[in-house]
Design a protein around this nucleic acid. Structure first.
Lengths: 248, 248
DNA sequence: GGCATCGGTGAACGGTGTTCACAGAGTTGA
DNA sequence: TCAACTCTGTGAACACCGTTCACCGATGCC
């Protein structure tokens, strides 16, 4: 059964260990502490050996970012298992709160994945291939998709979104519909008007904005109690989509 | 008149040159390229000499961040001079668009100032003293303040914001009122209800969120035309505050 | 003028990413 | 079985980096 040769197994194990130690260094001492030599030291090998696994430090950081996205997706999905499948509102709360909780608990990872310029973390983003937040984005998209599928949109309000945005939003609309369909729920493009797509985009702007501001401490005043502010924002977002505000 | 001694003048000149070169390195090659030795090399001096001016590399980066905030404030203010003083809506557009334009043109500076964790850029943020975005924040606060002073708020809607937020928002409320008063416009705390303060906070969340997402390329889909999306968001924000939507 | 202070130097220490020739173990095929 | 080959790791080396320290010359002050 185990087709893998001995060498392949050892290699895979070493690779996992490299990422594990790199991750630990990132968490405990920040991005600049993720050093090839430090990683090698922890593994009891020498730094050049790491080049058998990654092209460069930057390459390693890139793979690390991918790992982080995957783990975040797993964590967000795990927080979803106790929610009744038909209570989409509760699912939205769970995912959004999970995202904030994770970001605050893992600020270094958050900064690496969600606040890195192209020059400091290779080419990524949704322009070309291999977008960093791919695995992670899927979680959000799925919940957003379910939200749509479960809820009849008020009615056609496409004319409320500026014409210049139509092209972009239609792309995202297709992504959303595809994501939902991929989960087995058959949905037509028609149920998701452009204004809803626009609103989802704006929701991501607000969720990301709040979390990043909190992680980086850039609110314009000292917020002693950010959690109810976040919850209030979520309630507002859901309210604008026609959902009632549930308890925490 | 020139009280400064020769040594002091030379010192000030060297200091300016240090920051200038550090800034150039940051802009052109990113944060990691801001190296004491590289700066010294450009100035024709040796690296240890820089320790006569800054305690460490981190200290220099911190001062650099302050400079950037000041410059950004100057730039935003400069974009305000051509706007009629009574057209507050136009002022809001000018400042918000200026912020986005600056961030996109200076991604490295934006990342340093607005997306740095405490461990990577010393202690800052609105918790203790010397908040990084102080100079910059003032510009936004001023415009927001004018917006309020010039516009009668609908009416008391303080009950629409959750009780847990009242304490935090009251602090910000006072900051806003003080900022406006400091500009000569006498304003009472009464004209600015808590819901308006909450809305201003949310506006900052959205503005920051959109700009950061765009700078870091983390929108969930490839946005080919982000500018109208930003403008549309601004119009929405202003609309929710009871302002009409003006042309660009 | 004497003297303290300030700004800059050069050497040094320990750290970094990266390259390269080399060695040893694992694998493969005749 | 054993030679050939591939893969993983090594050690030395290069060019950088932040930081410390003793030293030195010019500047400024009494």
């Amino acid at each position: 059964m185990t087709e893998a040769t001995r060498r392949e197994r050892l290699r895979a194990e070493t690779d996992r260990e490299i990422r594990r130690q790199a991750r630990a260094l990132l968490v405990e001492h920040g991005r600049d502490a993720v050093t090839l030599r430090a990683i090698a030291r922890e593994l009891g090998i020498t730094a050049p050996a790491l080049y058998r696994y990654y092209d460069s430090r930057e390459d390693l950081l890139h793979h690390l970012a991918d790992d982080i996205c995957t783990d975040l997706a797993v964590e967000l999905n795990a927080g979803l298992v106790d929610i009744p499948p038909d209570d989409v509102t509760a699912q939205v709360y769970a995912v959004c709160r999970g995202f904030r909780r994770w970001a605050l608990a893992h600020p270094q990872e958050f900064a690496l994945v969600f606040a890195s310029t192209e020059t400091t973390l290779g080419t990524c983003g949704p322009d070309g291939r291999s977008q960093v937040g791919d695995q992670f984005g899927r979680v959000f998209l799925e919940v957003a998709g379910k939200l749509i599928a479960s809820h009849p949109m008020p009615h056609d309000r496409g004319d409320r979104v500026p014409a210049e945005l139509h092209a972009d939003l239609e792309v995202f609309q297709q992504v959303l519909v595809d994501t939902v369909n991929q989960r087995g729920v058959a949905v037509d493009t028609g149920v998701l008007d452009l204004y809803a797509v626009y609103h989802i985009t704006q929701s991501w702007v607000r969720i990301y904005g709040h979390v990043a501001l909190e992680v980086f401490g850039r609110f314009p005043f000292a917020v002693a109690n950010p959690e109810p502010m976040y919850d209030s924002m979520l309630a507002e977002i859901l309210g604008e989509m026609g959902f009632p505000t549930p308890p925490p």
